[in-house]
Amino acid sequence: MHAGKHPHWWGDYRIARGTTARWRIGPLTLWVQRLPGEWRMATEAGGDPLDSGLAFEQSVEVDDLAQRESTRRFALGQDSDRISLSARLADRAIVTRSEKPLSVPAGEEVQLFVSSPVWIRIEAGEPARFIDEMPIHRPSDTWFGPNSQHGELCYASTSSHRLRLEEVPIRPHRATTSVRVQNRAGSILSLDRLQVPVERLCLYVSKDGRLWTDDVIYTRREEDLASLAMRSREEDASGLAAVKIAEPRRAAGGHIALRAFSSIFG
């Protein structure tokens, strides 16, 4: 996307003093202005969340950047022209919903594809200093738990459970997660809502430009217990192997976790 290096929005950029660069990443427009000893940044996030557009302009004319409500200023002592954008997964788990509940009979397993929003992390200067982080499209908050007293604050994903990868479009601001659900219990599992702990997953990019997370495997063993495992996408044998671009926000706390059934499946 920049200097003809690669077609992604993340990476290092050079901004000349006194100029303003503009990125359009899906529904988000980001302006970054470099001034002596200061960086200014403004965003506009009201675009169409389904927009897959990607554009970068090295130098744009902006008159009113300082007047915008979203403008923030950052003071950096070292006068460097470097700014770095990187992709991160959400800072909370994502809850996905099925349009219609999907039933998995006892002994069966299913592979689902769900997508979740991506955040931008911005660093500037030499040495690189973190200046800001924001979602490209802010998802809605949601509560995941058996009642209003016990549960976890999560983000609601607008994507539903897709059985075929082709149904999940490649978007620069959404990462795809492959979720394998194994029903080893003696009764039918009705998948209405599913919690995906994206804050514990790594982020990857595959050759076709799709953002991926670690694979997630849920195994339902008994009526009230389910185990959760994560598998790196770098080791994928199906030809969709990907390169890691971000570490998880939170340590996974062991690769496999045994959790209450209700804490994974709504």
């Binding site: 802010r138 809605s140 908050d141 949601t142 509560w143 209003s148 809502r193």
Partner: peptide, 11 residues
């Protein structure tokens, strides 16, 4: 309520 990200989807 749907438009506002601070309004919980669930409940």
């Amino acid at each position: 309520a749907r438009r506002d990200p601070l309004a919980l989807d669930e409940p």
